[in-house]
Design a protein around this nucleic acid. Structure first.
Lengths: 246, 246
DNA sequence: CGGGCTATTGAAGTTGATCAATAACGGTGG
DNA sequence: CCACCGTTATTGATCAACTTCAATAGCCCG
């Protein structure tokens, strides 16, 4: 599960010809420096992106100047899909680390639906999975306290990073500033700091040098607002009646 | 735009044969009484539902017993889609008013992707639209204050209800209790009450008998956390390169 | 060795939560 | 038709979580 395509294979595993058909649509990889934005709210939608490497934040700006980060994208994620339903981009995509992305033009989506319908089902299910993630995030922010939110975020990141082999011994690179964590959780950076310290003092985590180590997973889990939902994987495909031959 | 199928036609308008193919999958409409739930978290996923009539809340339960309503579904919405990516349902669907739904079995989704690929594109874009709505909701709850959240909610409902012809003279039925509004906005019902009063005193709205009238739309708009994004409609389909013949 | 960003910590202030009591409403049965 | 009951709405008083303001320290980088 450490291929960069794990997200595209999660629900429907592509055959070799499908894989190559898919990859033909991937544009030349582009490097994005930390702090740079790929796309801003209001920009024209000329495609989506496949994230090969690095962390990208998707955020929304509010009238009062506050920003809400609605998703932390990790390698393997598709970026910019929600805006396909909009006239212009509804999110800002900003690199939290140096990153590499592969642009995918709009028409490629159309062609995937046409030429690789099984992959289209995969894209559809993947969108549903993102909805679940957003629902969870909304529940965290709307109905739980700072510690519970932060614990949930760390567990989520730990889990998603382990899928892409970026966790060793419960520790992982953590490039977010506390300010950015605040923008994810709907807290001020001051309070994020205090909440980190609390988790630290409880012995759940250890921090340092842009890394985080989860020292007591069970404890952290018990503090978190909710448990991870379990995704259906290939079962989702079976449930839909396997509409297309493999 | 007052057909119950407006959501399915928003991005890709179906031809007559497509329409009938689609509707063949719709099961016998079922009545749901106010307060009853269609599906609970953890339930088996045996399909999705098309909402013909009434209001349905999709909610998530947290460990501490608090509930977050993540979506208010109105007529024309598809219910239960996010859980297609999960092993078991990740949301509870509860009727906020008496409602009518038409069940759609899982295999129908597969068949739609197979037999009506244009409709599949429509479903895909519709899922992206739902993501945008969730992103907005997350931004409201995470990064704005009570008045701004409530104003945004009322404007959103007003807008969505007007699409299904349930607004007259800026007034509409409002079956939510203040407790439920709290579950949407991440506030207590006491504070929801005070916030309603504030909007009332500002002359933005008038309340009474399970109805709400928006008396000063511009004012309300200016209080809201953000403006509605503008959806792409048929343009989204063109952008994808119109993959399938009409 | 600065300069700028990030982290940390304290003190005071606000928003919204909690606790509590009462009023209004809607439906039911007598 | 009215009394009664449970649910919902309203309001006040107090409390807590989180914010704001402010100051200092640590870190990375040129």
């Amino acid at each position: 599960m450490n291929s960069p395509f794990h997200r595209l294979e999660e629900f429907v595993s592509p055959t070799e010809p499908e894989k190559s058909k898919l990859q033909r649509h991937f544009g030349e990889p582009r490097k994005i420096g930390r702090g740079q934005s790929i796309r801003k709210e209001g920009d024209r939608i000329d495609g989506i992106f496949f994230l090969l490497e690095g962390w990208i934040a998707s955020s929304i700006l509010l009238r009062d100047g506050k920003r809400q980060i609605v998703k932390i994208h990790l390698p393997g994620d598709l970026l910019g899909c929600p805006s396909l339903a909009l006239r212009e981009s509804g999110e800002t995509l900003e690199a939290l680390t140096d990153a590499r992305i592969s642009p995918i033009p709009n028409c490629a989506i159309g062609q995937i639906f046409k030429e690789a319908p099984r992959m289209a089902v995969g894209l559809f299910l993947s969108a549903q999975k993102e909805r679940v993630a957003l629902m969870q995030a909304l529940a965290w922010v709307g109905a739980s306290q700072a510690v519970e939110r932060l614990a949930a975020l760390l567990i989520d990141l730990h889990h998603r990073l382990s899928v892409v082999d970026q966790v060793s011994d419960g520790a992982f690179e953590f490039p977010l500033t506390q300010f950015q964590v605040g923008e994810i959780l709907g807290l001020t950076y001051v309070h994020v700091n205090r909440t980190f310290r609390k988790l630290d003092e409880l012995g759940c985590i250890r921090r340092g040098k842009g890394r985080i180590e989860i020292t007591d997973q069970a404890r952290l889990q018990s503090l978190a607002a909710s448990t991870q939902p379990s995704f259906a994987g290939a079962f989702a495909w079976e449930r839909l009646g396997k509409p297309f031959a493999a």
